[in-house]
């Protein structure tokens, strides 16, 4: 028997703040209908504010509630600093 876990991939770029939160949430909700594992590439993200961080946490919890995970990948320098400052790097799966 082969068990395959499908992983959705999302890439975001530019500023990730309160203005982008709604569309990000909608994208995550859409992805969660097909997969509970989401890989989120943050390589091109220049800035995240606290509202965006709250959206990332929400997405992480939704994925975990469904038995999956939100994986942050290729985390850009500015985002890495924020994750470290807030200690959220301890809460997320980062690769």
């Amino acid at each position: 028997m082969n068990i395959t876990k499908s992983i959705s991939a999302i890439e975001i770029s530019g500023r990730f703040d309160a203005h982008e939160a709604t569309s990000f949430r909608e994208t995550i909700e859409q992805e969660l209908t097909t997969s509970s594992n989401i890989r989120l590439s943050l390589a091109e993200v220049e800035f995240v504010d606290s509202t965006a961080l709250a959206e990332l946490v929400r997405a992480m919890k939704k994925c975990r509630e469904q038995g999956g995970d939100l994986i942050l990948s290729e985390v850009s320098g500015p985002v890495a600093v924020i994750l470290e400052l807030t200690k959220l790097d301890a809460a997320f799966t980062i690769e």
Partner: peptide, 11 residues
């Protein structure tokens, strides 16, 4: 003074 924990409400 660096954070000891993630924000309250996360974990």
């Amino acid at each position: 003074i660096a954070a000891h924990h993630p924000p309250v409400g996360v974990l």
